[in-house]
Nucleic acid binder design. Structure first.
Length: 302
DNA sequence: CGCCAGGTCACGC
DNA sequence: GCGTGACATGGC
């Protein structure tokens, strides 16, 4: 069994619950089956810093951002910033994944006014509707059990055209389930409005359709500075300050972006009435944001 | 069955 | 500029 050693902060559960990725499926072994772009990885803790993986190469090293020192970033937080310090202790192990910009953009356009479970469902349906099928050999480790039921309730294929969705068999992803790449821009553009609505996109369907039609030079956008890139992204339909910030933090790896959602707003109001000390934590405000989000959403009720 | 979700947009002032 | 309501749909 292939295994890797990861010394720096690395906690699969915390990354999965930090709200940046929506195609991580928890397995009963405690590991995850991760779909990213057109790749699939199975990974599970094997004690200490060791992890068993179904494959390993430069793609995954980059995906997990293994060249960034998150322990070092955490060490910049002084103990007198009580709330952030506590949040970062609780969130130790979170990393900012290097996800694909296009996938991140579409995912976070979908995310508006949706719960995280609903986002997962939506994204899987979109992949099933338009994503390239991946080969069976990409999918899993040899002795891997079925995905946890909570994450296997999606179908690999949408109901046949004309079928009543309410009547189709909601069989949970069986052995025949084929994994799918996240749809490319061209693949999304090929979908009809009806197809998009069948993915549960609701009023976001028109945003997705419009963005899929545009010419988006993502390669060139990578070279833009933070302020310019933020402005360019916010010109897109369905993209406001929050979606643009998330796209930059999670899709362009701009670690200083600090998306402000309802949870972060609560944190700022409750614990930083004088304002968050952005200057102190630059250029890693986005990492701090993830600690705050994770802690406030998963632990503190107050 | 009703509420709310990692917001955005089009209004009104 | 800032406040306000509509917006589609699925989880819980």
């Amino acid at each position: 069994m292939l295994s890797v050693n990861i010394i720096d902060d690395f906690d699969l559960d915390k990354i999965a619950e930090s709200g940046q990725c929506f195609r991580w499926h928890k397995m009963e072994t405690g590991g995850y089956r991760i779909q990213a772009g057109d790749r699939v990885l199975s990974i599970r803790p094997a004690g200490g810093h060791r992890y068993e993986v179904s494959e390993w190469d430069a793609f995954w090293e980059n995906y997990f951002d293994l060249t960034t020192d998150y322990r070092g970033i955490r060490s910049r937080i002084p103990a007198d910033d009580r709330y952030l310090y506590t949040a970062a202790e609780a969130g130790r192990g979170i990393r900012i994944l290097r996800q694909d910009p296009w996938e991140t953009l579409i995912t976070f356009i979908i995310s508006q006014r949706k719960s995280i479970p609903a986002i997962r469902t939506c994204v899987e349906k979109l992949c099933a509707a338009a994503g390239r099928p991946l080969s069976e050999t990409d999918r899993t480790m040899p002795d891997e059990p079925e995905p946890h039921p909570a994450f296997s309730g999606f179908r690999a294929f949408l109901p046949p055209e004309g079928a009543d969705p309410a009547q189709s068999d909601p069989a949970p992803c069986p052995e025949s389930c084929i994994f799918r790449a996240f749809p490319t821009q061209e693949e999304l553009a090929s979908l009809t409005m009806e197809d998009l609505l069948a993915c549960g996109l609701g009023y976001r369907a028109k945003y997705i359709a419009a963005v899929a039609e545009l010419s988006l030079p993502v390669g060139q956008m990578k070279s833009l500075d933070d302020g310019t890139l933020l402005g360019e992204l916010m010109r897109l339909p369905g993209v406001g300050i929050k979606v643009a910030s998330c796209t930059m933090l999670f899709g362009f790896h701009r670690l200083n972006l600090f998306p402000e959602d309802v949870w972060i707003s609560r944190v700022l109001k409750e614990h930083y009435p004088e304002g968050f000390p952005f200057a102190r934590y630059a250029p890693f405000c986005g990492v701090m944001q993830q600690y705050l989000f994770y802690y406030r959403r998963n632990f503190r009720k107050s």
